[in-house]
Amino acid sequence: TTEYTFTDDEEARRAIEELKKRGLTFRYEKHGTTWRVRVD
């Protein structure tokens, strides 16, 4: 499991789109302004 942290909404959304394109399994949660994206 790899975890990424983003504080920029645009950056987080781009990363999420990219992961979807690659067909990877991931989860994300947003805490205030911080996004945590975990890739299995």
Rank of each mutant, 00 (worst) to 15 (best):
T5R: 07
R36H: 14
E18L: 11
R13H: 10
E29W: 15
E17Q: 11
T25G: 06
R38I: 15
T34L: 13
Y4F: 10
F6V: 00
F6P: 00
E11L: 08
E10N: 12
A15E: 03
R13E: 08
H31P: 01
E17F: 10
F26L: 06
R38K: 11
E18D: 11
E17Y: 11
E11P: 03
L24H: 06
I16H: 01
R13P: 01
K30I: 09
A12W: 06
F6Q: 00
D40E: 13
E17H: 09
D40A: 11
W35V: 06
Y4I: 06
E10F: 10
R36I: 15
V37C: 03
T2P: 04
E3W: 15
D9V: 10
T7G: 05
Y4M: 08
H31R: 10
G23S: 03
R27M: 11
R14E: 07
E29A: 08
D40N: 11
T5A: 05
E17I: 10
V37E: 01
A15R: 04
R38E: 13
R38P: 00
E29Y: 14
E18N: 09
E3R: 04
R13W: 14
Y28Q: 03
T2H: 11
F6R: 00
A12R: 02
E3C: 15
I16W: 02
R38W: 15
K20F: 11
D40K: 09
D8G: 05
A15K: 10
R22Y: 06
T1Y: 15
R13A: 09
Y4C: 15
K20G: 05
E3G: 03
H31E: 13
L19V: 02
D40L: 15
T33P: 08
L19Y: 06
E11M: 11
D9Y: 13
E10A: 11
L19K: 01
K21M: 09
R38F: 15
T34M: 11
Y28D: 02
W35L: 04
R13Q: 09
W35Q: 02
K21Y: 06
K20M: 12
A12Q: 02
I16C: 06
F6E: 00
D40T: 13
R14S: 08
D8N: 14
H31K: 11
E18F: 12
K20V: 11
G32T: 02
T34P: 00
D8L: 04
V37G: 00
